[in-house]
Nucleic acid binder design. Sequence first.
DNA 1: TTTAATGTTTGATTTTTTTCGAACTGTAGG
DNA 2: CCTACAGTTCGAAAAAAATCAAACATTAAA
Lengths: 104, 104
Amino acid sequence: MKTLTLPSVSEMNLTAVCAALGDPIRMKIVQCLARSGEKNCSGFEVEHISKSTLSHHIKILRESGLIQPRFQGKEHFYSLRKEELDRRFPGLTEMLLNEPASAE
Amino acid sequence: MKTLTLPSVSEMNLTAVCAALGDPIRMKIVQCLARSGEKNCSGFEVEHISKSTLSHHIKILRESGLIQPRFQGKEHFYSLRKEELDRRFPGLTEMLLNEPASAE
DNA sequence: TTTAATGTTTGATTTTTTTCGAACTGTAGG
DNA sequence: CCTACAGTTCGAAAAAAATCAAACATTAAA
């Protein structure tokens, strides 16, 4: 059974969202999704991390409410929860788009 | 000699700012400053932490560019760098003000 | 010049987070 | 049914962050 817990708009918490965005890998994933819509794990432009580590970061992003999954066959497609974020944290998605990808 | 390093607007980094805001104590301090302007350490509404821990959190906030100090006598007054933040991260200070103080 | 007040810094400890490989789950194709 | 693929979960190890007490610095006041 797939029990997917995604916080509602009112359940989203700014501190948790900031903590999620406070890691360079997660920031990069979120910026990637902000710029290009839906992607599966292999589409995130992150290198040199194992798939279990990537999965861990995705979980934190999902639990904070920043991203949402869509399951299709064996692939998990993720996307920014733009509508929800724009309601809860106006200006945030623009911030993500305006910020240059940090050198890593 | 007091060498105070405060990042310029262009030096501010979204990931670092988010990491700074990702801790509940620091979030509370910043929200406190956003609502009420300048305060010294004893004015931050945080309890149950030692002064050295508080000083540590203040340092992280200052180095991220979120707050700035003003030295007057033996007191250090801190304030949000509102003008700089509004230029670099439009919408951020509103987010801080809109967010209810999280129960701790 | 002592003493008290307001922090900061240092060094050590605890706690949390990040990371990985291995095992596992579910899906699709042969 | 067997195998490959895409990803998650588990358990352990490493790295980073938070925490505190003690020592230090600076200012002001007695």
